[in-house]
Simulated assay, not measured.
Amino acid sequence: MTKATRMTSDEQTGPEPAHVPVLLDRVLALLGPALSDRPAVAVDATLGLGGHAEALLAAHPQLTLVGLDRDQTALTRSRDRLARYAGRSHLVHAVYDRMPDVLDELGIHGVDGVLFDLGVSSMQLDVAERGFAYAQDAPLDMRMDQSTGMTAEDVVNTYPVADLARVLRVYGQERFALRIAQSIDRERRVAPLRSTAVLAELVREAIPAATRRRGGHPAKRTFQALRIEVNAELDAVRSAVPAALAELTVGGRIVVLSYQSLEDRIVKQSFAELATDRTPPDLPVPLPDSGPQLRLLSRGSEPATDDEIAANPRAASVRLRAAERIRQAS
């Protein structure tokens, strides 16, 4: 069933959606049992262009949705897209690790569903001047919130070589991190690096020819690493996922879409921490206060299907994890 068929006739207004939400049907199916046929509250922690949020609001007429995004342009576009649901939605300019504060400010105590769609959004990739894409020339920005914080230009021009290599190695899993950092250092001694195209070409030349002929664009890992550093993405995920789990009521569900292994590992560990029985192994029966707090709803991390990837190529790297709260913390 498509999003449109879930809308009533008076809701089928407004502009045609500009993007295809990743794993939409799977997200709706996983969150549905926690949101259906009653007043419920869900948080879309990474609102983006509002595709998942719109479908959730259309599918659940009693749902109140809280949408968070650090990108003010995305928020503006989502407000337009979700205008028909203004009476039961709260759209807030905030990074997702501020979820507990936002809910407290709204007077909401406990939620029934949470969705994270991590990583860079379609809009951020497609708007060249944001500087996220190595295939288009633009200023080296990469900030998800362009109103604050350092840019990728700041990182490549001011970080010591050792720190820059660490960022590329840890966040980009780049084998040639030191070579690239040294190449950047030689270039910036001549003139500051300001262009995505110049950086992409510099990275390409720094990587051995035999390596750059395989595995996609040679600058892909460097751009990922810079984006993660600029936006402190992994730090936000480390604090936001446990905080979101703490907000879930019993029966509430969480779905997380990750696009690279570092994010997925954090989500896996956060879920496992609460899905484990803590009863001491020498006791014959489980202790009620030591039992699991979560039930995992996905077997490991789920990839997109071939049909999903064909319809939406950006789903190729997605990994989904989902869980349901079955017991509150003691």
Rank of each mutant, 00 (worst) to 15 (best):
M1Y: 08
K3P: 11
R6F: 06
S9N: 11
D10S: 11
T13W: 09
G14E: 06
G14P: 02
H19L: 08
P21D: 05
L23H: 00
L28C: 13
L30T: 12
R38L: 05
L47P: 03
G48M: 02
G51S: 02
G51E: 04
G51I: 03
G51N: 03
H52S: 07
H52A: 10
E54S: 05
L56D: 00
A58I: 04
Q62N: 14
L68G: 08
D71A: 01
T73G: 13
L75Y: 12
R77M: 14
S78W: 12
R81F: 03
A86C: 00
L91S: 02
L91G: 04
H93F: 10
V95K: 13
Y96Q: 00
L103W: 09
D104T: 15
G107N: 02
G107S: 01
H109M: 03
V111C: 06
F116Y: 15
V120Y: 00
V120M: 00
Q124L: 02
R130W: 09
Y134C: 10
A138N: 04
L140Y: 09
D141F: 10
D141R: 09
R143L: 11
Q146M: 12
S147C: 13
T148K: 14
M150Y: 13
A152T: 05
A152R: 03
L164N: 12
V167Q: 08
V170P: 07
G172E: 12
Q173D: 14
R179Q: 15
A181D: 13
Q182S: 14
R186V: 13
E187N: 06
L193H: 04
S195Q: 13
T196K: 08
L199M: 04
L199V: 01
E201T: 15
L202T: 11
V203G: 10
P208Q: 11
A209M: 09
A210D: 14
T211P: 05
R214D: 06
R214S: 11
G215C: 09
G215Q: 06
A219S: 13
A219T: 09
R221I: 08
F223Q: 10
Q224Y: 05
L226M: 05
R227S: 14
E229P: 09
E229D: 14
E229H: 14
A232G: 12
D235G: 15
S239C: 07
T249N: 09
T249K: 15
V250A: 12
I254F: 12
L257C: 01
R265D: 05
I266L: 15
V267D: 07
Q269G: 04
Q269F: 06
L274A: 07
R278I: 03
T279W: 00
D282T: 09
G291Q: 14
R295G: 11
R295W: 08
L297S: 10
P303A: 01
A304S: 01
D306C: 09
D307Y: 04
E308G: 06
I309K: 00
N312E: 01
P313Y: 05
R314G: 04
A316V: 14
R319N: 07
L320N: 01
A322P: 11
A322F: 12
R327P: 08
Q328N: 15
